[in-house]
Simulated scan of single mutants.
Amino acid sequence: MAELRFAQGINRALSECMQEDPTVFLFGEDIAQVGGPFGVTRGLLEKFGPDRIRDTPISEATMANAAVGAALSGLKPVLEIMFMDFMTLTMDALVNQAAKARFMFGGQTSVPMVVRTPHGGGISAGPQHSQCLEVWFAHIPGLKVVCPSNPADAYGLLKSAIRDPDPVVFVENKALYAMKGEIADDAQAIPLGKAKIVRTGKDVTLVTYGACVHKAMRAADTLAQEGIEIEILDLRSLQPWDEQAVLASLTLTHKLLIAHEAVEAFGVGAEIAARMADIGFDELDAPIVRVAAPFVPVPFAPALEAQYQPQEADIIAAVRKLCA
């Protein structure tokens, strides 16, 4: 086992995929000499050279369209968009081209590309550098969306994303880049679409992903002192998502809470709640509850940002409400 930071787990996955497949290459703003704004690609330029680790001009639309073209021509591009907020500039390439190519060409071609991008708050970056927009892409047929919560999952899921024949949006929470965790020397790729039970419990099912997993774990420790045991499912993949794992847990606990950092309205939690209200209605002993951000832009001020983001106290209050 090796203890690596979240960012280092991503770096290791990128390096190994490039070593095993010469068609994989990386490009994005400042990813080569600088190693990206969060240092994720640091050292890869020295290993693989400027032909495979490329800095680009500041034009997200151009980068995304270039990635689609490269993927259609037989390469496997891994594009880094510096902040998820700037994914707004990639929408035509991803939504109208990458996501539709397999369908429009009758299954004769695919677009094996990955777009890595950080989301989330916690660094007082304000409303244009802190948004969680993953649900936009989960809504598009033809795109896959992944959001790991720890270094080992970041490593294993990224390897699967790069090997996948279809476009994958790989979302990384900025608050997790420095997080440490163990990754086995012989760690394997993790299949997309499979959730993971990170804590077992009998009273409430809590479904979450990304940085919210750790807030959920801390909340669970507090609730356990009150005799309330919550089962926590880390989705890992948002599209496709593991509805059978959620349903199986709901069958045991009969209460469902969904938590995420993204805005609550029309979010990932809304889709899961609607689906479980359909296929899991007979298992529910209480209304489904969501904990998420309010319907306002992300504030700059640290104190306001902390109030904006869902916290352990919000999860604890929601669980108590469910168990009342």
Rank of each mutant, 00 (worst) to 15 (best):
A313L: 12
F83P: 00
V146R: 06
V115P: 06
R102Q: 11
L238W: 01
I272Y: 11
Q225N: 12
S130H: 09
T205Y: 09
E80S: 05
T90D: 05
W136Q: 11
Q128G: 00
A317S: 14
A178M: 10
A274E: 06
A301W: 11
V207T: 06
L250V: 13
A259E: 01
T88P: 00
Y155Q: 07
M82R: 05
A248C: 12
T200E: 14
F295D: 15
L72S: 03
V207A: 08
E226I: 05
D278T: 00
A101Y: 15
A220S: 15
R52Q: 14
G267C: 08
L257E: 04
I53R: 04
A318S: 10
Q131I: 09
L250W: 07
G74A: 10
L284W: 03
E312R: 03
A184P: 15
C132Q: 04
E60I: 04
V207S: 11
R54D: 07
V111M: 10
S149R: 08
G121L: 02
A70T: 09
A277H: 03
G156Q: 07
V115T: 05
H254Q: 15
F103M: 13
L14K: 01
E3G: 02
Q97C: 11
Q131W: 09
H254T: 02
E16W: 10
A64T: 11
G142W: 15
E264Q: 14
A32V: 13
V319E: 04
